[in-house]
């Protein structure tokens, strides 16, 4: 049986037997699939696996994980300690590479980029917010925020505009010439957030961004992140331990023993709260 016959046979139960219609249908389906892929899932993990091998022991915190994250969403990633949250976040942030599986970010398979290409990709696409801020102690708040812009081809004037805007957004523009040691933890984290958003990255990742802050500062930081997600439309992926923080997120993922459990929307909360 020829391919033509196969196509005809398969479509024999449809009202139309016109061959062009069949091809059109196939083309449209393919197009839709791609469009869906383009619009719906910006981050697409397929069979994502990360193993760490040290000496004779092998640890596999992520084992064949499938996950789609849409552009513009705010995802909270929860789970017990050692469940692989940071591992997943680091893979998405492109500072680590998967052992196997694919990690598509837009049209790019990040897992297959070379070290230098990955560095370039990070500088354009990722803003990373650390639990311990990781500001450079010898640089002022302003200079810390300016740092990622130095990787771009920008004039000093353009850089200034962007840094000023970012500092204003996080509400710390009056402390721009202070060094990190002169700032409170919450203020340091604001500067770190400004540093993460100043390059207008598509994705902002945060690993327990409020883990080192008191409740009031934590709430401020979280609403700031929410604001960045809503007003700037940035995709935000945040690792958190605190179930209360998840109310800011649009989607909550629970990672445990390499298994991913989805909890619906912002009204949902972690299983620990509603047993």
């Amino acid at each position: 049986m020829t391919d033509e016959a196969l196509v005809t046979n398969r479509n024999s139960d449809t009202p139309s037997t016109d061959r062009t219609d069949v091809f059109l249908a196939i083309t449209v389906t393919a197009l839709c699939a791609n469009l869906w892929r383009f619009f719906m899932a910006y981050i697409e993990c397929r069979n994502l696996t990360r193993t760490y091998t040290k000496a004779s022991t092998t640890i596999t915190p992520l084992d064949g994980l499938d996950l789609d994250i849409e552009e513009g969403s705010f995802v909270a990633l929860m789970g017990p300690s050692g469940s692989g949250k940071t591992t997943l976040l680091n893979l998405i942030a492109g500072i680590d590479s998967p052992t196997s599986g694919s990690l598509m970010m837009g049209a790019v398979d990040v897992g297959k980029l070379s070290r230098s290409k990955l560095a370039l990709w990070r500088s354009v696409n990722i803003g990373y917010i650390f639990q311990l801020y990781n500001l450079v102690p010898v640089l002022t708040a302003y200079e810390n925020v300016e740092l990622p812009l130095l990787l771009r081809n920008l004039s000093a004037k353009d850089r200034h505009k962007k840094v000023a805007a970012a500092l204003e957004l996080v509400g710390i523009d009056d402390r721009h010439d202070h060094f990190p040691r002169q700032l409170s933890g919450g203020q340091e984290q604001r500067v770190a957030i400004a540093r993460a958003i100043v390059t207008d990255p598509k994705i902002i990742v945060a690993d327990e961004p409020t883990g080192d802050l008191d409740r009031a500062s934590a709430a401020e930081i979280l609403s700031l992140l929410q604001q960045i997600n809503v007003e700037l439309g940035r995709t935000l992926i945040m690792v958190t331990h605190d179930p209360k923080t998840t109310k800011y997120a649009g989607r909550i993922l629970h990672l445990d023993k390499g298994r991913l459990l989805e909890l619906e929307s912002s009204t949902a909360s972690a299983p620990g709260i509603h047993p």
Partner: peptide, 13 residues
Amino acid sequence: VRELGMLQSLGFP
């Protein structure tokens, strides 16, 4: 070390 790692995470080669 951590600071140098952070600089790399920003994309500095």
